[in-house]
Computed example of a mutant assay.
Amino acid sequence: MRYISVETVEPGDLLGKTIYSSNGTVLLSEGVQLTVFMINTLKRIGVTMVYIKDEHFEDIEIEDILSEETKRAVMKQMSDTMDALRSGKDFSTKAVSQSVDSLLDDIMKNRDLLVHLSDIRTQDNEMYVHALNVCMMSVLMGLHRNLNVIQLKELAIGALLHDVGKVGAYDDESEEMRKHHTWRGFEILKNKREYNLLIAHVAFQHHETEDGLGVPRQVGADSIHVYAKIVAVANTYDNLLFNEKLAGRRLLPHEACEHMMAMAGTKLDREIVIDFLRTVSVYPTGTSVKLTTRETGVVVGQHRGLPGRPVVRVVRGTEDDFEVKEIDLARQTTVFIDSVIA
């Protein structure tokens, strides 16, 4: 399986991972043979990258921290929650809590896997995939911070609902909009008696910064709750990858990590950024790369302790006569990844 730009997909290619709608239903199933119409539809609905099956990499599976069942259930619950808020109704805190329980169960089982944000986004589902990813990454960082079970669940609920204040608001990322949606999210969540007030503070403070120049209140590091600091790191990473407004373009994972290291201590909590970098796959499995040996290949394996030194499979020759070799960058210490082939 390879992760490639939708612009390079050819008719007849087989889809490597299922694409979901905003409510968790299947748009295109894994294994479907893509047609010109399907490819054009993917472009039209905002898909930029997809997984494609490849016979040279058919043994490679993307190990996800969350099961497909959990992802669908959480996205469906987020869709129901946002629809309720848009129509001026109350949302079910019990249903959200149950979704979070399933998510936490998956994460506890797969906590040693590296973060790989592999779900394909469309204009329709991006808000819910973003919430899901921020929640998952926040819980993993919470585990590094040795939060207990109750704290992890509070963090997870706050992370999942951190952008709840955007519902019904203008869709832009101006400073005024960020300030507005944090206040609005706080007001929505603080009135939920079933929730600890700290959950509301995640929505309230996730755009505050260590240097006191954030929104909505420009408070410094000492006044920002650790839940909000954790969610700020996860939110920043996901936005760097998928929201071109933050850095001027969508960054690749290794670029986003470099960007976040530069923000550590001023915009983001330094220690939490370090925790995050221990959990993320810098060169995700399925990514095409060029090595300093001038060879090109695909990342096929990861090292938990060395996320920047994956295993790369290089295929050379023709379809009828080809050679396959794997280069473990953790062992081949003089070989480096020169660039990522998007």
Results as ranks from 00 to 15, higher is better:
Lys166Asp: 05
Trp183Gly: 02
Met136Val: 10
Gly220Phe: 13
Gly88His: 05
Glu208Met: 12
Tyr237Val: 08
Asn191Cys: 10
Asp64Thr: 15
Met261His: 10
Glu55Phe: 05
Ser223Glu: 15
Asp321Asn: 11
Gly297Met: 10
Arg309Asp: 04
Glu326Gly: 12
Ser67Thr: 15
Thr296Pro: 00
Ile120Tyr: 07
Gly142Pro: 05
Arg316Phe: 07
Asp222Ile: 07
Thr296Ile: 13
Asp59Cys: 03
Glu258Arg: 09
Arg331Ile: 11
Val219Pro: 05
Cys135Thr: 09
Lys325Met: 12
Ile337Ala: 04
Phe57His: 07
Lys53His: 13
Phe336Glu: 12
Thr318His: 06
Gly12Asn: 02
Lys89Ser: 14
Gly158Trp: 09
His180Glu: 13
Lys325His: 02
Glu55Gly: 10
His181Thr: 08
Thr334Lys: 02
Ser138Ile: 01
Gly212Lys: 02
Ala203Trp: 04
Thr8Arg: 14
Glu187Leu: 13
Val298Lys: 07
Gly165Phe: 14
Ser288Gly: 03
Leu113Glu: 11
Leu252Asp: 03
Ile39Val: 10
Val47Leu: 00
His225Gly: 13
Ile52Leu: 14
Tyr128Phe: 15
Ala247Gln: 00
Leu66Thr: 01
Ala221Phe: 14
Val36Cys: 02
Ile62Phe: 06
Pro284Thr: 14
Asn125Asp: 02
Gly305Thr: 15
Met82Leu: 01
Asn196Ala: 11
Val233Leu: 06
Lys109Asn: 10
Val202Lys: 01
Thr285Trp: 06
Leu198Glu: 15
Asn133Ile: 09
Phe37Asp: 12
Lys179Glu: 07
Ser288Lys: 14
Thr266Lys: 06
Asp269Tyr: 05
Arg331Ala: 11
Ser174Ala: 03
Asp338Gln: 10
Asp320Ser: 10
Asn133Tyr: 11
Ile188His: 00
His254Lys: 08
Asp124Ala: 03
Glu154Trp: 15
Gly12His: 01
Asp238Leu: 03
Leu189Glu: 09
Pro307His: 13
Val226Ser: 08
Val300Ile: 15
Phe276Ser: 00
Met1Trp: 10
Tyr195Leu: 15
Lys153Gly: 04
Ser138Trp: 06
His181Ala: 04
Ser5Tyr: 07
Gln302Leu: 07
Ala200Leu: 03
Gly24Arg: 01
Leu198Met: 14
Lys190Glu: 08
Gly286His: 10
Val315Thr: 05
Leu277His: 12
Asp328Leu: 04
Leu155Asp: 07
